[in-house]
Design a binder for these strands. Structure first.
Length: 989
RNA sequence: GCGGGGGUUGCCAAGACAGGUCAAAGGCGCAGGGCUCAGGACCCUGUCCCGUAGGGGUUCGUGGGUUCAAAUCCCACCCCCCGCACCA
């Protein structure tokens, strides 16, 4: 273990940390760990187990620094528990399911500049390699390999024997079992469901499938059907209640319309509407095309009022929005109002159209506080709209719609809805018109146009016979809640989010027609989608080890998975069925079956599931749901931890900002441990954390300094003196407290706090210790022995966080074996030394007070004298502490004090001090009062006298220490009188 | 809209659940000093304002309130971030 190779040649005796070759150091220890297989974990009934899992990665791009956060936290947790004596399992797999791999490969094939740029510029993948990635599976295996290397390089303590992908035949077989079991429990349902759809790809589109990553929003709109001679003119609207205020219809004069039979009715709609209706399962037969001109100026009948009115040209009408036929409510819709004005102007001189237009005027049907009868007109003025194509119409409309919806009231001319709030009236009118067959609903993309990556405009499609997992099942919800209630959630604040999600989840589509994955066992035309096949795979890690290890036995199932019956899973995972029967049915030897069963029973449930915060509302909640129904209560998950994002130099990482550091590049540049600590050090769990090069560099320095310390101390044990000083005891006491708080912090995965204590806090203590000791005097103190002790304990605590550095230090200070396999230090009660702590606190306080006086006065001391409080003051002080606890009144207290003959002899002095002491005691927090009471009279004079040479060094001045009332005291300004317990008087000259 | 999280002293970030020891940890940055040939690193000191005696004043998004005492508890308001489904 002579690691001189990790130092580059310039190293020499003076430690120059920047010269450390981190990669060599890391590789050295990773090799040794690997050689000794220390991360391979099997069941061991003699030891308690701990099972950690983290969300497996999706290999459609390399991982970056951000991904490292979840995995590093999981690894810290795993390593910490190993050192606490738990037989700890931390496995990893790869998620291939779904279409993102296809999508990514496709974008690469098509030369999508964003992707090519990212792969080339950010990830540094050579062009020649990119060729190979154009095939989805090659891409997956390439990135899988890259991600795995990254995980090894950053030092994750993973048992790689259990690795798998979600398209392995036996994994698919497992998911089939999973879904069949859910189905048997009645939790799979079938139904009809609207989705955003690309008619070209014939597939649903989500946010990742659209140009510009737009999330398609689906919403209902209403089709109010106007009529003329048995022909219907369905108009699309979000505000059916305004039908009372309709004065005309609009059609786009440049658009083409069709007459079509829709569900046995004759409709007039835009040409673009036909496809939309068909995708929503309407039967549409087009009879003929109608140019818009043919429709203009005709009249139609209002289905509610029965009035006839004309159809006008409106250039603002989008034939692709709704039906391309729009009802006009100029009193309350700014677009309509403006269009009417434009039209009147344009046809002012027309003998034909002029009169009709002049007769068309806004109708007021909604009363709205703060607006005139025609709010649309008010808005046009307010937003200074120029014409019907003015973009300011949009916000004008938005604002008015929302105001009217929330605060508007229907007027007298709206029949039975008169006096109703608008929101209520809308509901009522929809109900009534639906009954009369005068209204229908149309699903629309609210944020149209949404364009698929293939370039096609998306629309809403109703998928028939879609398969769902029914999270709405009430019994299931109850189970899930019960499971959640007994889960440890870190950070605890996100529990509310879980509760909300469990309540809110209902049917969720669980299968798609495209993408990689497992076919639905009873309907192979569907593939189980990615968020549904990834919720119980933690159990599969137990199986996968045996699938690999007993390869010969399981090989035949890989060729034909149907040979592996559900009985196998029911037995190994649920303990159902008799082993003999299962062995016979499967041909798997009993020995193996029972080994799997034993191992499963041993490791399950998962003790801590690590994931990112944004998965709370889907993956992690599904995880709870599925486990609660699939497994018995004793095998329900025990804990979930969800961490926030990693920011890069304060900004969100994004391909466009080019501020992504790929993990492996980061490791190469900064080293594994600096990256590990870097993603953990600046924020607590739930918070977003910020990574920066500066941070990584500074952590690297810090770690190198510790290695340097180890180097200086060397492997040889130093004898030191057997008798420890109070200062030595203080240092050990501080160490003991550090162990205690770091342990508490890691128990709750407060990793940031642990790093703070272990890497920084202890440095400050050690620095104080050395400063107090002063210049090194060989053989006269214990410093090397104590500092070695501190470093050794500290190294063990560093091991989960920065394992490579810890190993290096561990070996350099002469320890055998791996520090990562050593025991986590325990706080030793009798090493806590409150007296030493108190003494040092006093020494420090006096140092600060003296400095402050020097600073305020600007003087350079020729002599410094400290006067500690007289014994009688201590007596009064302690009595005051007691009295404050008992809520004594001031007067009574002073009387009591003056009852003491000795104190009475001191006269006013004693009374004054008594009143001051009581006041202080009353303001003190309870805890402090108690501890001071317990400490009793402190030997301040001794403490300060012992520190005299320290003060002398610090202030470069002679120091005298007296107790108030000592004989021979030199106190020209009579300052000793001002001394108080815990607050010696100071005299400077 | 619904739900969740947050706004702290130049920046980042603890503290808040359990109100007093909080002008408020720690890190970064900045300034001065030590060490050094020098730079870096390291160590010390300072870093809201005032102050020739360890003190005083004003601060924790804004405005109120409770309390002997509020960054912390209560109410109202303003602002920022995240999740909301067929997408991993």
């Amino acid at each position: 273990m002579q690691g001189s190779s990790i130092w580059q040649p310039q190293g020499r005796e003076s430690v120059t940390p920047a010269k450390l070759d981190w990669r060599a150091l890391e590789r050295k220890w990773q090799k040794k760990w690997d050689w000794r297989k220390i991360h391979e974990t099997d069941s061991d009934s003699r030891r308690p187990k701990y099972y950690v899992t983290a969300a497996y990665p999706y290999p459609n791009s390399p991982q970056h620094i951000g991904h490292a956060r979840t995995y590093t936290i999981a690894d810290v947790n795993a390593r910490y528990h190993r050192m606490r004596g738990y037989n700890t399992l931390f496995p990893m797999g790869f998620h291939y399911t779904g279409s993102p791999l296809f999508a990514m490969a496709k974008r690469l094939r098509e030369g999508d500049p964003e992707i090519v740029e990212a792969f080339t510029r950010i990830y540094g993948i050579p062009r020649s390699m990119q060729e190979k990635l154009k095939d989805p599976k090659s891409m997956a295996s390439y990135f899988r390999d890259d991600i795995k290397k990254g995980m090894v390089e950053i030092g994750l303590s993973i048992d790689w024997r259990r690795e798998f992908t979600t398209i392995d035949p036996l994994y698919s077989r497992y998911i089939e079992w999973h879904f069949r079991t859910l189905n048997q429990k009645g939790l799979i349902t079938r139904g009809t469901h609207p989705v955003a759809w690309c008619p070209n790809d014939k597939s649903p589109v989500g946010v990742v499938d659209t140009q510009g990553d737009v999330e398609p929003e689906i919403g209902d709109s209403y089709l109010v059907k106007f009529e003329k001679d048995g022909v219907f003119y369905p108009t699309s609207t979000l505000r059916p209640e305004t039908v009372f205020g309709v004065t005309n219809l609009w059609v786009n004069p440049k658009a083409t319309y069709v007459r079509a039979t829709v569900n046995e009715e004759s409709w007039v709609i835009s040409r673009e509407t036909v496809g939309k209706l068909q995708h929503q399962n309407h039967k549409v037969v087009v009879e003929r095309e109608i140019p818009a001109g043919e429709l203009l100026w005709n009249t139609v009948r209002n289905p509610v009022t029965g009035n006839d009115f004309p159809i006008f040209p409106g250039s603002f009408v989008d034939p692709d929005n709704g039906t391309g036929v729009v009802m006009s409510v100029p009193g309350h819709a700014p677009y309509d109002y403006q269009a009417l004005i434009d039209l009147k102007e344009r046809y002012a001189g027309s003998a034909e159209a002029g009169p009709i237009l002049q007769a068309t005027n806004p109708i007021s049907i909604i009363r709205l506080e703060g607006f005139s009868d025609f709010p649309a007109k008010d808005q046009i003025k307010k937003f200074e709209v120029k014409d019907q194509n003015d973009p300011r119409l949009e916000p004008a409309t938005q604002e008015l719609y929302s105001r009217e919806f929330h605060d508007g009231v229907m007027r007298e001319n709206t029949g039975s809805y008169s006096g109703m709030p608008v929101a209520k009236a809308r509901e009522a009118i929809v109900q009534e018109l639906t009954r009369q067959g005068k209204i229908e609903t149309l699903l629309e993309l609210r944020n149209a146009p949404v364009v698929c990556r293939c370039g096609t405009k998306c629309l809403v499609h109703i998928l028939e016979n879609q398969w769902f997992i029914n999270y709405g099942d009430l019994e299931w919800k109850k189970l899930a809640h019960k499971c959640l209630d007994q889960l440890v959630i870190l950070p605890e604040e996100i529990r509310a989010e879980f509760n909300y999600t469990l309540d809110w989840l209902r049917e969720r589509a669980c299968a798609r027609t495209v993408g990689l994955g497992t076919k639905l066992p009873w309907d192979p035309s569907w593939t189980i989608e990615a968020l549904s096949d990834s919720v119980v795979y933690m159990a599969y890690y137990i199986l996968s080890k045996y699938f690999a290890k007993d390869w010969v036995v399981f090989k035949k199932f890989e060729k034909d998975t149907s040979e592996l019956p559900d009985a196998f899973f029911n037995f190994t995972l649920l303990g159902e069925g008799a082993i003999d029967g299962v062995a016979k049915e499967t041909g798997v030897p009993k020995r193996i079956l029972s080994a799997i069963r034993t191992e499963f029973e041993y490791f399950y449930p998962v003790d801590m599931r690590h994931s990112a915060r944004e998965l709370v509302s889907n993956h992690l909640s599904f995880y709870i749901f599925h486990h609660s129904t699939l497994f018995p209560e004793r095998q329900w998950p025990k804990g979930i931890v969800a961490n926030g994002f990693v920011l890069m130099e304060g900004a969100k990482m994004s391909k466009s900002l080019q501020n992504i550091i790929p993990l492996r590049q980061g490791i190469a540049r900064f080293g594994a441990d600096p990256v590990r600590v870097g993603v953990l050090a600046t924020a607590e769990l739930g918070q977003d954390t910020d990574f920066s090069e500066g941070l990584a560099a500074s952590i690297q320095q810090r770690l190198a300094i510790l290695i340097g310390q180890a180097r200086r101390l060397g492997a040889k044990k130093t004898a030191g003196k057997s008798k420890t000083s109070i200062l030595d005891r203080w240092m050990i006491s501080r160490l003991s407290i550090a162990v205690l708080t770091a342990t508490n912090a890691l128990d709750r995965l407060r990793v940031r706090e642990a790093i703070n204590i272990i890497l920084y806090q202890l440095d400050n203590d050690a620095a104080w210790y050395k400063r107090r000791l002063g210049p090194r005097k060989p053989r006269s103190d214990n410093r090397d022995r104590i500092l070695r002790r501190v470093l050794e304990t500290r190294t063990r605590m560093m091991a989960p966080l920065a394992p490579h550095t810890a190993e290096e230090i561990w070996s350099r200070i002469g320890n055998k074996g791996f520090v990562v396999q050593s025991d986590w230090p325990e706080e030793v009660e009798n090493e806590r030394d409150p007296k030493a702590e108190l003494a040092e606190a006093l020494v420090r306080q006096l140092l600060d007070d003296t400095s402050e006086i020097l600073k305020a006065t600007g003087m350079t001391p020729k002599r410094i004298a400290y006067f500690t409080a007289a014994d009688w003051k201590w007596q009064v002080y302690l009595k005051a502490l007691k009295a404050a606890g008992e809520k004594n009144r001031q007067g009574d207290f002073i009387k009591e004090i003056m009852g003491d003959p000795l104190l009475r002899s001191l006269g006013k002095n004693a009374a004054d001090y008594a009143s001051k002491a009581l006041k202080q005691a009353n303001q003190m927090p309870d805890e402090m009062r108690q501890s001071r009471l317990q400490d009793g009279i402190t030997a301040e004079k001794t403490i300060f006298a012992n520190a005299a040479d320290f003060y002398q060094r610090e202030f470069k001045s002679p120091i005298n220490v007296w107790k108030e009332g000592d004989t021979g005291i030199s106190d020209p300004k009579d300052r000793a009188r001002m001394s108080e317990p815990y607050r010696p008087a100071i005299y400077l000259e």
